[in-house]
Design a protein around this nucleic acid. Structure first.
Lengths: 206, 206
DNA sequence: CACGAACCTGAGGGTGCCCTCGATTTCGTA
DNA sequence: TACGAAATCGAGGGCACCCTCAGGTTCGTG
């Protein structure tokens, strides 16, 4: 349960930070957000420190690992997923809810190299992110079940296929984001058209 | 233009190699093939040298760059693509030819991490590979055109979408190859079902 | 078999990134 | 303002990989 806030003024965990420390922490988070967005999750940490106007030592004092950054930055942004899922479940048409969920997820990923990596990659030590993804999975389960029950989503679609689709789309997004930011939509259109029950011709074996 | 043979006994280019050099070169190629297959194109070259029973210096004497390896190894294996394309064009049913081409391509990629990387990645300095891919593209153009002309492939599918699909599938293959070697087939089934003209519901915008 | 050319070796310098830790500065309080 | 705790700094050691080159070895021919 995320009791940690990285907004220093609200810091609930342990001692409050000294003023300079709080400022640096905030700068680091902002810098990390920008750098990850531009270069992906594997960007050198020293670049983040430089952009934050802080030494590499200070960076490590605040965030002992790359995953600590990830965990501090992305859960908040990924919280949108809950909204998207709720909206999808609220959609009177289960199919358009399902498609809307996928579109929302991938649109989110396509905004930001870092976010795209965070969603598509296994990050065992980023607990907060894992937690958000788990929540997303629970929502997805209901969305998928509803679309299947309505007879619109093909019956041989399984929950695990969502992970596969995410891998697939994450790569499309990664490769095209900087040159053709909407290319992934074409791919998704093909895919979702193939996921309709009435389109199912090729049985998906296990 | 591939006048170079990396089978020393047939070496046509320039001077013939000394016996030990020829042996080493063959060992290096075998080692590189194995290592690339297991670890992908970014595997450390020193690992290849070690497996070939040769020093790193010797490796560089034979293959001055990683791309030289790629160019020496993969064109031969990618030549299968020509066969696959021919078989697809020979198929009386344009649609099943089209699908067969995709299946053949991805099945090839799924055999080998290195091959998967070679197909999915831009390798500007691997001329031989680029050449093979270019040939593949020409074949693909006819296969796509035929499938579209027959009214079976959706009309808004474009040649460039093939590259996108390749990116997508390469990632699925990469992530699942070692744990679920056939997972990509499910994904491809969804995709191809969505590529049929009669399945087209969501227009693919540019 | 002896000699030179061809070939091989591996230590070592370069790069880029990771992360630590003792010295130094800054903050906030008394 | 002066003091100690808190925070910062950045040089530097590690690591993994890249690539080179001077010196030793092997081949194959005369």
């Amino acid at each position: 349960m995320p009791s940690i806030s990285y907004h220093p003024e609200v810091a609930a965990d342990s001692k409050p930070l000294r003023a300079d420390a709080a400022r640096n922490r905030a700068n680091l988070l902002a810098a990390a957000t920008e750098v990850f967005a531009a270069r992906g999750l594997d960007a050198p940490l020293e670049q983040i420190a430089r952009r934050a106007g802080v030494s590499i030592g200070t960076l490590y004092a605040h965030f002992p690992s790359r995953e600590a950054f990830v965990d501090a930055i992305f859960p908040e942004r990924l919280a949108v997923l809950d909204r998207i899922a709720e909206r999808s479940l609220a959609d009177p048409d289960p199919w358009s809810g399902f498609v809307g969920f996928l579109e929302g997820l991938f649109a989110l990923q396509s905004e930001d190299h870092g976010l795209n990596d965070a969603v598509a990659r296994r990050l065992p030590n980023a607990r907060e992110v894992a937690e958000v993804c788990h929540r997303g999975g629970l929502h997805a389960e209901r969305i998928v079940a509803r679309a299947k029950a309505s007879g619109q989503l093909r019956a041989d679609f399984e929950l695990g296929d969502l992970a596969t689709l995410t891998w697939a789309m994450s790569q499309v997004i990664r490769e095209s984001m900087d040159t053709a930011p909407n290319a992934w939509r074409r791919c998704l259109a093909f895919l979702t058209d193939g996921l309709r029950a009435e389109a199912a011709r090729t049985p998906a074996g296990s």
